[in-house]
Simulated assay, not measured.
Amino acid sequence: MKSKKSIMTSAVRSNTKTMSTQGSLSVSSHLDFVQGQYANNGRDMPPGKCVINHNAKGYIVWWYIVAFSAVISGVFTPLALAFFPGIRYAEIPLDCVFYTDMIVTFFVSVNVHGWNIRSNYGIFREYISFYFWIDLLAIIPFELMIEDEWGSFLRLFRLLRLRRLFPLFKKAEKSPLCNYTLVSICKYFSMAAYYGHWNACIFYELARLNHFGSNTWVSICVPGLENRGIGAQYLTSLYWAFSTQTTVGYGDISPQSDSERLWGIIYVFVNLLLTAYILGGLHTPLSNMRNHAQHLSNNVHAATWRVETFQKVTPTHTERRRERRGRWG
């Protein structure tokens, strides 16, 4: 007869063995599912035809050209909307760059979670899932399709091209050749500068669409601004944008019409979110800079203490003779 203790021990061992077997089966089935999912997405498929390596030097040069074109487009598109409304074909060269880039992207390998996707189906699936639609909105010539002046605001979808700058900043932050703190500061200050530039152009465009009537900020706050040069018009609009963005708000320029007030509400609300994002992002690089300065200061103090403590100046023979004469009179 088995004792009660031995029966309980054998039962526990059998349950443990069953649980371990079920656990191994569940883990293996999960791994099979994940591998099958990756295979279905094209990650395990053989390389496709005419696929370009995303680390190739030629493609990296093209990538920098596209990023530079995005920077120009982010500056020129709002300017053309507000201050050069008659220009409709000036952005065609930039549009051609992004048309070409969309076609090239279908043949460039993609690195997703450590998987280098080189099959045509996998590249197509990854691009069409999200970024394709953003790039498509950014290349549609709305100003040629819609004659209405208010419809010209749709050309601001071109600003979505700036999404190509985020991988550039991310790569620069990880590069050992670049200073992480300086790159991060440049990134966040560029975001603030772009946001102020866009809102300055939109604020002036709202007054222009109302034909600088008596209820616009131009006619009430800055009379005669529409007859001055483009430089004065842009500088005045930029002054309002940055005084509002920095929460200074002098009050000498303020929204007057309903459309201007509505845009002012949207501008302030988005500015709160952007300011919180920028301050949160700047905390890490500025903390690293302070820690680096403190570490450097500690090293300098330690080196100074060593020099003052251990470095002894050896007296010359003449100084020793003078010292002896002084002692013995």
Rank of each mutant, 00 (worst) to 15 (best):
T246H: 07
S237G: 06
I139E: 05
L156P: 04
L225G: 02
G151N: 00
G213C: 01
S214I: 15
A200K: 04
C221M: 07
L225V: 15
L165M: 06
K170I: 00
C186N: 13
L165T: 01
G224H: 04
L156V: 07
R161E: 01
F153D: 02
Y234E: 01
L165S: 02
M145N: 12
T246E: 02
F153T: 06
R228L: 13
L168T: 03
N227I: 02
A192S: 11
L144I: 04
A138G: 10
V222W: 12
Y180R: 12
I185W: 11
G213Y: 13
F130S: 13
G224M: 05
V222G: 08
Y188I: 03
N215R: 15
V222I: 10
F132W: 13
W217D: 03
R161L: 13
L160N: 06
I146Q: 09
F203P: 02
N215W: 14
I185F: 09
F130R: 10
W150Q: 03
Q233V: 03
Y239C: 15
S152M: 12
G251A: 00
S243R: 10
A172H: 00
C186F: 09
A232P: 10
F132E: 05
Y180S: 08
R161N: 09
L154W: 08
H197D: 02
A232N: 10
P176A: 03
W150M: 07
I220T: 11
I140V: 14
Y180T: 01
F169M: 03
L137W: 15
W133V: 01
S175L: 09
